[in-house]
Design a protein around this nucleic acid. Structure first.
Length: 588
RNA sequence: GCGCCCGUAGCUCAGUGGAUAGAGCAACCGCCUUCUAAGCGGUUGGUCGCAAGUUCGAUCCUUGCCGGGCGUACCA
């Protein structure tokens, strides 16, 4: 990567200057290379001279001059300029830029890959939405971020495994089983009772469409009715023949199966596929919960008081201890999470584990980091990425707010692409107010189509070339003919692609930051630059076939990168896009 | 109260310890007898929440304040 090369180049120049006594003795600062915002400042810039000025007691300009004179000449740099107040600017050579197209073409759909992961095994666990309802818009953000991240890590040379953790044990499943049972009976016309054994009339609230009396039932899952109905369609009323407790558990379990079936299908349509669906219940069934508890006990991390069993996280630098086993003898969610992570690291042996959590789970992070210490895992190997919550129309999504939006509802209108794009186009750190109208707007107000349209343009040029009888000869094209500023700008942007992937992967693994928005922004910018090229440089010129061939090569390279970028985001790269009839936007 | 995140153009949001802070949308003005006008060019629009500090240099780092979101469970 040129950026790293320049950094090394400058470091060597500084060392040489030090050795020659041109600079006073001082520790060489880290040389960071940036892209100047203005093209006239070149392609790369370093500001190291200004950072050295103070300790060196010399003017930054003078230091910059010294460094510049000590730079070893390299073929890819055409010019080095020192600019006030002390920048050293590097300009790439045109020859070199032009020659890079060959490499882009040769690498095809592997262009953008970087060697960074050393085949380390990384597990990315994401979505992991409770199996008690459809995939919501909130979980969709998780799905899009997680899948895109997994794609990027794969491109960065990691071995990646995608996993969905199914919370099919514990308290909420008990509540789910109750809910399923209520609705199963109600749908079959049988009486149902509340917590206290009083009969429940399952009338629907006219405004919310929710059962009025069931609200009194603690933690009832309203959407269980839909799944109960489906269960009856599939299995009829055969569960009634079983003893109640057994029937309840079984109806709940079958309900979870139905939920997961639908959710897997929805996610697949979104382009999100998992290698492993890991069930929490398996941790109980295989004794791993007990094993994890024993491990903590052996490590001296457990104490009993107030009738409960605690994880002594305060001894590991946390604010307070956490309950493992409640007074009533039932383990908390924390226990299965400990066992689950023990399983990830110690049983399955992942080198790195990435968890993608919504911000409302953020408080759980320090506990899990403490657990890593307790089970002898480097806490840095557990990377917990947090994204802020999704709201709809400014409100937190819930059925009570009447703004509950399942993924399915939006995807049926738009298909997956606009969802994938818009979900990663925002920094995970920023909360996202989902704009339904924008998401479903199939017109030029939606940047997603701008990007795809640009790809379609590249494809279209090749179709036209065929019609015009121009056979692309990409390998033998004379790339030195690409001297137009728009052509050179386009080449420069193509070369930023691997850099972008490297940055995103590195910031994830090393700093625990998921800056996935850089992908859509990069792609948008590339599309813009391509469209300028398209305007300025007519590709298919019968009167000048050598130029046509060179431009076809550049177009093909652009096409590769646009397609790859779209693929990384889980989107399609259409060969053509016809102006669709504008879809009516549903009223609020 | 404490912890995490956010506050940048009318709206939705990028961005960086540096050289004149950007994009999309909206608004306005232009451009289809050559590769798709889902496009291109241009104009308007900013005290980067407020204040102090660190620095040669702060929108970026620190502190305080204001405003918003989330958390602070023997829920998950």
């Amino acid at each position: 990567m040129i950026k790293d090369d320049i950094s090394a180049l400058v470091s060597q120049a500084i060392s040489a200057a030090l050795a020659a006594g041109e600079l006073p003795e001082l520790a060489t600062p880290e040389v960071t290379v940036e892209h100047p915002s203005k093209p006239e400042h070149g392609d790369y810039a370093v500001s190291v001279a200004m950072k050295m000025a103070r300790t060196a007691r010399m003017s930054p300009l003078k230091i910059a001059e010294i460094i510049k004179n000590r730079l070893a000449p390299v073929d890819y740099i055409a010019a080095v300029e020192v600019a006030p107040p002390g920048f050293i600017n590097f300009r790439l050579s045109e020859d070199w830029l032009q020659s890079q197209i060959k490499g882009v073409l040769a690498q095809g759909d592997t262009y953008g890959n970087v060697e960074m992961g050393n085949n380390l095994r990384v597990q990315v666990e994401f979505v992991s939405a409770n199996p008690t309802g459809p995939i919501t818009i909130g979980a969709t953000r998780n799905a899009c971020l997680g899948d895109t991240l997994a794609n990027v890590l794969l491109a960065a040379g990691f071995q990646v495994e995608r996993e969905y953790y199914v919370n099919d044990a514990g308290n909420q499943i008990r509540a789910w089983n109750e809910s399923m049972w209520i609705y199963y009976r109600d749908e079959l016309g049988l009486p149902v009772t509340d917590d206290k054994g009083e009969p429940l009339a399952m009338k629907l609230d006219e405004e919310t469409g929710q059962p009025t009396e069931a609200r009194e039932f603690k933690d009832v899952r309203y959407n269980a009715r839909d799944y109960a109905r489906e269960l009856i369609e599939r299995e009829g009323k055969r569960f009634l023949e079983l003893p109640e407790e057994q029937a309840k558990a079984l109806v709940g379990k079958e309900g979870v199966k139905i939920v997961l079936e639908h959710n897997e299908e929805d996610l697949a349509q979104l382009g999100v596929l998992f290698d492993v669906w890991f069930h929490e219940q398996a941790l109980y069934d295989t004794g791993q919960i007990d094993k994890a508890m024993q491990l903590l006990r052996d490590g001296g991390h457990v104490s009993e008081r107030e009738g409960a069993v605690w994880f002594v996280s305060s001894a590991l630098g946390q604010d307070k201890d956490n309950v493992l086993i409640r007074t009533n003898g039932i383990p908390t969610y924390f226990v299965s999470d400990i066992a689950y992570h023990f399983n990830k690291f110690k049983v399955r042996g992942f080198d790195k584990v990435v968890n993608l959590w919504a911000a409302d789970h953020q408080g759980h992070i320090p506990r899990m980091k403490a657990v890593m210490q307790a089970i002898g895992v480097n806490p840095d190997d557990l990377i917990i990425l947090v994204y802020q919550l999704v709201s709809v129309n400014g409100l937190r999504m819930s059925k009570r707010n009447k703004n509950f939006i399942p993924l399915r509802e939006v995807m049926d209108i738009t298909g997956p692409d606009p969802i994938r794009y818009n979900m990663v186009a925002r920094s995970p750190e920023a909360s996202l107010d989902f704009d339904v109208n924008l998401a479903i707007a199939q017109n030029d107000t939606n940047p997603v189509y701008y990007v795809q349209y640009s790809h379609a343009r590249t494809a279209s040029i090749f179709k036209k070339a065929e019609e015009a009888g121009i056979t692309p000869q990409l390998d033998s094209a004379d790339l030195s003919l690409l001297g137009h500023p728009s052509e050179l700008t386009l080449i420069r942007h193509l070369l930023l692609f691997p850099e972008t992937i490297q940055d995103v992967a590195k910031n994830c693994i090393d700093n625990g930051v998921a800056e996935l928005q850089r992908l859509p922004f990069y792609t948008l910018e590339l599309a813009r630059v391509f469209n300028s090229f398209y305007r300025d440089c007519y590709v298919l010129d019968q009167a000048n076939l050598p130029v046509s061939q060179a431009r076809l090569a550049l177009t093909q390279a652009t096409r590769n990168v646009l397609a790859r970028a779209l693929t990384l985001m889980g989107m399609s790269a259409p060969e053509r896009m016809d102006r669709a009839e504008q879809l009516a936007v549903p009223a609020e």
